[in-house]
């Protein structure tokens, strides 16, 4: 079977898998960004009742394996009465895991905004919430974009693990095709190429574009 024949036979399944991977990626990114923002701000809070949970979340999700987290959320949480569909369990696990790393980026970027900006906002008598929303976060956002680019690519590649709880993503389809044809080089080779194209020609240019747009909004053209 030539590679062309292989593609013709399995293109539909590979495309389906790619669509599921893209959906997992988008949902997981949303979860990661939200979790990172909440936990990153929480970790900076002076209130231990807010800081505590943020630290626990970051420690657990950064300190343990993504695969184990995935299995926990999908196989163990039902024992405690919380059953999630596998699709949701997939993107939640990946998103929460990456969000814990993202939280440190959020915290670091907020702390990297020059002290003079905090002082100028205080001199204008802003409340801490207004200061964060109007002065600090917009500047922190620009600072954290480049490291977020790396993290989002890690997230994309991390979604391949959801195939292990039978979410029919690109990796799952590649494994299925391999199991029925034993064409390992073709199946996994194609998966490899698709992941590379997504990372290199979709995610990276998008993050670069976002960096440019944000830099323009900061007047750094």
């Amino acid at each position: 079977m030539s590679y062309q024949d292989f593609l013709q036979t399995y293109a539909a399944r590979i495309l389906n898998g790619t669509a599921v991977t893209a959906a997992q990626f988008l949902f997981a990114s949303g979860v990661a960004i939200l979790a990172a923002l909440i936990a990153g701000l929480g970790k900076l809070s002076a209130n231990p009742l807010i800081r505590g949970p943020a630290v626990v979340y970051i420690e657990i999700f950064r300190g343990t394996s993504l695969l184990v987290q995935l299995y926990w959320i999908f196989f163990v949480l039902p024992l405690f009465g919380l059953t999630l569909p596998k699709f949701a369990a997939g993107f939640l696990s990946v998103g929460m895991n990456v969000g814990a790393y993202g939280a440190e980026l959020v915290r670091g970027a907020i702390q990297a905004v020059p002290r003079g900006q905090w002082e100028a906002a205080l001199a204008l008598n802003m409340t801490p919430a207004t200061r964060m929303r109007r002065v600090i976060l917009p500047q922190a956002f620009l600072l954290m974009l480049p490291p977020w680019g790396n993290l989002i690519i890690e997230l994309l590649k991390g979604t391949a693990l959801v195939s292990l709880i039978s979410v029919a993503d690109l990796m799952f389809q590649a494994k299925q095709i391999n199991a029925s044809t034993y064409l390992s080089a073709q199946s996994f080779g194609t998966a490899l190429i698709v992941y590379y194209i997504l990372a290199r020609f979709v995610v990276t240019p998008f993050m670069r574009w976002l960096e440019r747009v944000m830099a323009q909004r900061l007047g750094r053209t």
């Binding site: 003079g116 900006q117 204008l124 802003m126 750094r220």
Partner: peptide
Amino acid sequence: MCFQQFNLFPHMTALQNCMEGPVQV
């Protein structure tokens, strides 16, 4: 207060810098 290093908000224009306090505070 005015500072040695100005500390204008870099993501706002001159006018927006001046309007920020009156509007938000």
